[in-house]
Simulated scan of single mutants.
Amino acid sequence: MGRWVEVGDRAWVRRHAELDLSLGLVAGDRACLVVDTGADETQGAAFAKAVRELTGLPWSVVVTHAHFDHAFGTAAFGHRPVFGHPGCRAALAGTGEAQRATWAEHYRREGRPEAAERIAAARIVPPGRTVTGTAELDLGGRLVRLVHPGPGHTDHDLVVHVPDSGLVFAGDLVEEGAPPSFGDAFPQAWPSALDLVLALGARTVVPGHGEPVDAAFVTRQRAELAEVAALCRAVATGALPPAEALARSPYPEDFTTEALARPTTTTTT
């Protein structure tokens, strides 16, 4: 179901083969923080059990963004505080059922009815504690910062900064092993969001998908996203035909097509 990778003092990432997903855990002296919860309650319950193999401390949860693979397992963690951006709460309310239907059908087409049923049965739990800019959580002996860096992968991404370990859980603002996903993204703002992530000075960054990376990796991905942002601007202004933008992009055609279809404004909630 998953494997633990230690990424700092009392900080771990749980790696999953399914969707190359990374879920996180940070522990202090009195409490721990779970970073994202998985794609359904079965995965969430397995993750919760794995957390209990490392610590018996009371937990709270942060949801980095509202996509099903990061948020649909939250009910498995019971009635504990759940943190997220207000836009995450709104997106789960507004798109949760559509995500459920889309991904259940995806797994049925793949011949995986059990996975489809798990998503169909998942209870969607919106964040009850919202963070619009920055918030600090005291886990006992260590502070963890939740930071909204502006629109990027979505309009409501939160990153989890663990200053005493030089660590950031970046959600899907950073992806390792595959190109970033632009389905709900703001491509022209995404590089600025990564500027803020880099400004946190982390030595280790945990992507939402893929293995942990260093700041140099994030810098390279930021440069690629800046190329995509420039192509989006050029197409939007008529300076470049879409076919030429697709040819110039650092990412495959289907990813770039998604980016070109996204809004050119950076208005967020």
Rank of each mutant, 00 (worst) to 15 (best):
E6S: 11
V13S: 06
S22W: 12
A27C: 14
C32K: 07
T37L: 00
G38C: 09
G38Q: 07
D40A: 05
Q43T: 14
A45I: 07
K49E: 14
K49R: 14
A50T: 01
L54F: 03
G56W: 12
P58C: 03
W59H: 06
V63T: 10
F68L: 15
F68K: 09
F68S: 14
F72K: 05
P81F: 01
G84Q: 03
G87W: 08
G96W: 13
E97I: 12
R109C: 00
G111A: 05
P113T: 04
P113L: 00
A116V: 01
E117Y: 11
R118V: 08
P127A: 01
T132P: 01
T134C: 09
E136D: 10
G140T: 00
V160H: 05
G166P: 13
V168R: 04
F169K: 05
A170Q: 11
L173N: 06
E175W: 07
G177M: 03
G177V: 01
D184R: 15
Q188K: 11
A189F: 07
W190E: 10
S192K: 13
S192A: 15
L196E: 15
V197T: 08
A199Y: 04
A202K: 01
H209W: 02
E211N: 07
F217E: 11
V218E: 14
V218C: 14
E224V: 00
L225Q: 12
A226N: 08
C232H: 14
R233F: 00
A234S: 07
A243S: 14
A243G: 10
E244F: 01
L246E: 05
L246G: 03
L246C: 03
R248Q: 13
S249E: 10
F255R: 14
T257K: 10
T257E: 08
A261I: 11
P263N: 09
P263A: 03
T269R: 13
